[in-house]
């Protein structure tokens, strides 16, 4: 749109200054991650003394050794995968058919059902009634409970419903001519045509499951069921006031700081691996789900 060669001197200076500012913000965004990575590879002594700034001081893998030897780390890592994959599949199993039904003009009470779903975006009962309900349902400390209870949300259903509604009728009619029923129309026409929207919702589900912390902390008691985020939290809050740990660590080459940093690195890595692939979806996705019309 704009040609650099047509820029005046002032415009060029402006563009360069802005680029530098953007660069500074980008570095400020990136720096904490680099810092944490540097801490994780530093010796416990250097980290405790605040010597780490940009690169590891007295490079060591002791903190990782400590983490990777902890069976609880692997258990919670596995659990996070179970919650993420199971939860996302569960979400899609509810959301795709639900959104399809809500998008059908022939659905009686369509207006009511849409309001029934949307109302939960504006009003929710809050933490306590939700918790008591989970208890009454016998879903405390249940992995299945976590997967089921957070499967659906109004926003994702409405996002997909809007997308379904925008699909031209002619696509459906062709399938109907061939005698397709609703399940077939959904599966063979709507789902393939809605790949971007479904990818977006899948992405939202994966991210919220991978990062899910609060309810996992509240609802799960057994250590063998907790996800990585809860394990990370336990570690951060326990390590620093654990005297026994303090004695062990002086002998070894790690500290509460380096161990915390190492867990952070371990739990970010999968996000970093997937991130480049999902990027093209979320930019479109946020706009799909954003302002309607």
């Amino acid at each position: 749109m704009m040609n650099w060669n047509l820029y005046s001197r002032g415009d060029k200076i402006f563009a360069i200054v802005v680029s530098i500012l953007i660069g500074m913000f980008t570095i400020a965004t990136l720096y904490p991650f680099i810092y944490i990575a540097a801490v994780s590879f530093s010796s416990g002594f250097a980290a405790q003394a605040g010597k780490v700034v940009l690169t590891p001081i007295n490079f060591t893998l002791e903190a990782y050794g400590y983490i990777l030897k902890d069976p609880q780390f692997w258990i919670s890592y596995r659990n996070t995968f179970i919650y993420t994959i199971g939860g996302t599949l569960m979400s899609l199993a509810f959301i795709i058919p639900g959104a399809y039904a809500l998008s059908r003009p022939q659905l009686k009470g369509r207006r009511f059902f849409n309001l029934f779903v949307a109302f939960t975006m504006w009003f929710n009962a809050g933490l306590i009634p939700f918790f008591l309900n989970m208890r009454d349902l016998g879903l405390l400390d249940s992995m299945f409970g976590i997967i089921l209870a957070f499967a659906v949300n109004a926003f994702n259903i409405i996002l997909l419903r809007n997308f379904f509604e925008a699909i031209p009728q002619s696509f459906e009619e062709a399938a109907r001519m061939d005698g397709a029923n609703d399940f077939q129309v959904l599966w063979k026409v709507f789902v393939p045509l809605s790949k971007p929207a479904i990818a977006t919702i899948t992405l939202f589900c994966i991210v919220s499951r991978w990062n899910g912390f609060f309810w996992a902390m509240v609802l799960l008691q057994s250590e063998e069921k907790i996800p990585l985020q809860v394990f990370l939290r336990h570690t951060i809050s326990n390590l620093s006031d654990d005297d026994e740990f303090a004695i062990v660590q002086t002998a070894a080459g790690f500290s509460a700081e380096t161990v915390t940093a190492a867990i952070i690195v371990c739990s970010i890595i999968p996000v970093l691996i997937v991130y480049p692939f999902i990027q093209k979806y979320f930019e479109k996705g946020i706009l799909l789900g954003g302002v309607k019309e």
Binding site: F94, P97, G98, L102, Q106, L107, F113
Partner: peptide, 18 residues
């Protein structure tokens, strides 16, 4: 049209229960 109601039902039950 029973099929679309069948598709809606699980989601509706979920909203009611949770």
């Amino acid at each position: 049209e029973w099929q679309i109601y069948a598709m809606l039902l699980p989601t509706l039950i979920w909203f009611v229960v949770f």
